[in-house]
């Protein structure tokens, strides 16, 4: 699992963030479509966790293994916790929480990218 996966997740987060921000501006509560988007991001993150663990086993570059994997695990948890928090607030607060969760995922992706080493395969 290499650089492109970070780009994919960040792009997904970007799209989700735009949709969420628009609905937030319209004062809408979190919609089914938002949760589907979170689900898509979640699938990508699970794939990234598996792929990242495999890649970590194969690489001979110096990566802080524990830190790397704990970031990947945290990433998987963020959309789930965010979705539960959001479901508890069926108002624009819920939409905001999803937006915060997506922003958190994007931020963590950048850190993981750094930890893995931003250049080379």
């Amino acid at each position: 699992m290499t650089e492109w996966s970070y780009g994919v997740v960040i792009a997904l987060c970007g799209v989700a963030a735009v949709v969420l921000a628009i609905d937030l501006a319209r004062d809408r509560a979190a919609q089914d479509s938002h949760f589907i988007a979170m689900g898509v991001i979640e699938v990508a993150l699970v794939a990234q966790l598996v792929g990242g663990a495999v890649a970590l086993g194969r690489t001979d570059r110096e990566v802080e293994g524990v830190v790397f994997v704990s970031y990947l695990v945290t990433l998987v948890l963020v959309p789930i916790v965010g979705a539960f928090f959001s479901l508890a607030e069926r108002s624009r607060v819920g939409t905001s929480i999803l937006l915060l969760a997506v922003a958190t995922v994007a931020g963590l992706e950048l850190r993981v990218w750094d930890i893995w080493g931003a250049t080379g395969g």
Partner: peptide
């Protein structure tokens, strides 16, 4: 609750 839940999340 309310915005507090968003705050707790962050």
């Amino acid at each position: 609750e309310g915005w507090g839940r968003a705050l707790v999340f962050v």
